[in-house]
Design a binder for these strands. Structure first.
Lengths: 169, 169
DNA sequence: GCAATATACTAGGACATCCAAGGGTTTGGA
DNA sequence: TCCAAACCCTTGGATGTCCTAGTATATTGC
């Protein structure tokens, strides 16, 4: 989107909230808005790195997930649950990955309702390359210090647990 | 997305990263993934609250921005810059808000290229109601403690500044 | 054993975001 | 003065996400 602004728009919003008598929720509003914007920035960086591989983040996440499965295959519903996205989003991603010959659909051996997503050799190779690129260019240069990283993992982990993402830990 | 998982999928991913020799970037990867997922959860909460008002978050943000402008009007390119989204996204939002009679387009008095977005009385009323609902149901119950909120604002603020969102502060 | 319920995937539609390209307006340098 | 470059907005296309059905297969309960 363009040139840097002279002032932080989220800090401005927080001041506006306070000015209108919503001081008690101005700070959480600012924190939440900052999370939204940070996500947008990070996603843009990731997509930029993945583009040369012909991948989007959604497709990469699926490839990476499969690459960690023992057999290199997962039922669609498992993938949907682990990636925490709607089943139709997985269908969409698999459609495109399959068209690119990076994954293949195969019927579940015992449950006729279930479809397995299987990594092809090309898919596995690409996942490895893409992961190396992301590690080098995004995760290795996140812009967060080690203490901030630990704090984010802890605070957001608690938040996600309280939100019902998972139970353990 | 259904039932809670028995284990934190992001913590699992972090372990997988470490197991594959990427221990040096496993933590930032987990932090970034957690930000993505947290954004997803927060967005879903916000959209749920806004739905009864016939608003989406993108449209609400534009209404709120206009409601804080002195004159209740802003050029489209200003809105695009302040909301930090692509100009076409603003066009899209204005199209729908205009159809709902919440904003109106008007020509800029001196610059023929520019279009002003103006809040209608109904738009201003709805923005007020929607803000009250969000404050009560989302920002007032964010799930983040006061210390965490302050920390998030500070850490993500630095991140956004370093990413080129703004210069001051 | 069979009907009712639950589960798994997919098709179609609504929205949002971005990019690329096009048409109109302004600005600025030759 | 005047034309090229810069700027503003919109259209069209690609992706992704979700929701609501609809179809097929499993499981459950009577």
């Amino acid at each position: 989107m363009g040139t840097p602004l002279p002032r932080d728009p989220i800090a401005d919003a927080q001041r506006n909230w306070e000015r209108h008598g919503w001081g008690d929720v101005a700070a959480p509003m600012a924190a939440i808005t900052a999370i939204m914007r940070t996500q947008q920035i990070l996603l843009a960086r990731i997509e930029t790195v993945l583009k040369p591989f012909g991948l989007t983040f959604a497709r990469y996440e699926l490839l990476a997930l499969l690459s960690f499965a023992r057999s290199g295959a997962l039922p669609m519903n498992k993938a949907s649950a682990l990636l925490q996205v709607h089943p139709t989003s997985v269908t969409n991603a698999v459609d495109r990955l399959e068209k690119a010959a990076l994954v293949a659909r195969s019927p579940h051996p015992t449950d006729g309702r279930t479809t397995l997503i299987e990594l092809t050799p090309e898919g596995r190779t690409l996942a490895k390359k893409a992961t190396a690129a992301l590690n080098a260019e995004v995760f290795g240069n996140s812009g967060f210090g080690p203490d901030d990283v630990d704090h984010l993992i802890r605070v957001l982990g608690t938040f996600r647990r309280d939100a019902g993402d998972f139970t353990e830990e």
